[in-house]
Nucleic acid binder design. Sequence first.
DNA 1: GTCTATACCTTGATAGAC
DNA 2: GTCTATCAAGGTATAGAC
Lengths: 201, 201
Amino acid sequence: MGTSSRIQAGAVMGRKGEEKRQRIIDAANTLFYHKGFTATSFADIADDCDVPKGNFYFYFRTKEELLDAVIRDRSERLAGLLDDLHKDIPDPRARLHRIADVPFNDRHEVAQYGCPMGTLSAEIGKLTPFSQNALTSMYSLLLMSMHHCLAGMGLSHDDADHNARHMLTRLQGAANLAQTFKDENWLEAEIADIHDWIDSL
Amino acid sequence: MGTSSRIQAGAVMGRKGEEKRQRIIDAANTLFYHKGFTATSFADIADDCDVPKGNFYFYFRTKEELLDAVIRDRSERLAGLLDDLHKDIPDPRARLHRIADVPFNDRHEVAQYGCPMGTLSAEIGKLTPFSQNALTSMYSLLLMSMHHCLAGMGLSHDDADHNARHMLTRLQGAANLAQTFKDENWLEAEIADIHDWIDSL
DNA sequence: GTCTATACCTTGATAGAC
DNA sequence: GTCTATCAAGGTATAGAC
């Protein structure tokens, strides 16, 4: 948090400011997910977080900087989630099953809005390289977690690499098609297959 | 073509008009793919196709109608491509291999802009149900072609369903992640795996 | 430090001349 | 039928009062 505000607008904030900044990020996070980055306006965000839109520029110099903060915030949440799984579930295979279930747990939203990372990445990848790094490092978190599980299950380094990529690909594709067809069953079916595949390794 | 113009603006056009309408669709098609639907303005399209933007409304009542025409145009191209494959390659397994190679053949563009259908679907799915049907019927074309190949390879109806879904999921995920990482190798690696998988069926 | 008022630009869409 | 000129609305961003 201190890290991310350093590279944002040079603002020095008190406790209240930090809290307000977070409110903006939270509202933007949801709206970028539900409507997309380009289709979301500052007015939309302002309505949702009760901060006047003119005030946004005290916390973020541009819309892209807000996007960056949103992605970093998501990364931190994902890192926390993966950390928790790592602490709570020592068995690597069981843990991998739980990772496969992450999108399934949100299947209703995923069928409506797609994968929060995948849809944003698809949009941003066309627009600007600005937040490219933040996005790929977020995916790398997932890949590393999967890799760690697979290695723990006895796979070689190369095999773990290969299968982590494979698993992420399937999850991403399932999320995209579940959204396209507005059908959670697509996600459900493919994730069920992934569970079988994990057990076959 | 006659069919699609009927449901668009009530315009009656001559040969020149049809040709101009097609120029608009072609330019919009490329720009929606490269920049996204929301981020593409009529001014952008007008610049690329040498038709004054005010004139667009003679051919399409709204931007959404233009989008619809773009998707229908893509559908016709895909249907033609699949038809050609069907005529040229009678062996179902060989044909399925060729279908798997479709995104691979455009790997350079896919690594930059993602899957033309998948990225559009991810964006549009959040905005409006307007072109939902046109999009899903386009995916259904692919699914049916895959299903037909799989059934021809001796799989039961249910197995063919299941595996067509699985294959489409992998292709879609591979395209998304290739774009995210700006890395054609991701696409290449996953499609290589799909070829192995096809041969294992 | 925080927020209001607003500038300036681009958007999708329209009206009416040719 | 085709296109130019323009609209009202909404976009991001800024300047400056409190």
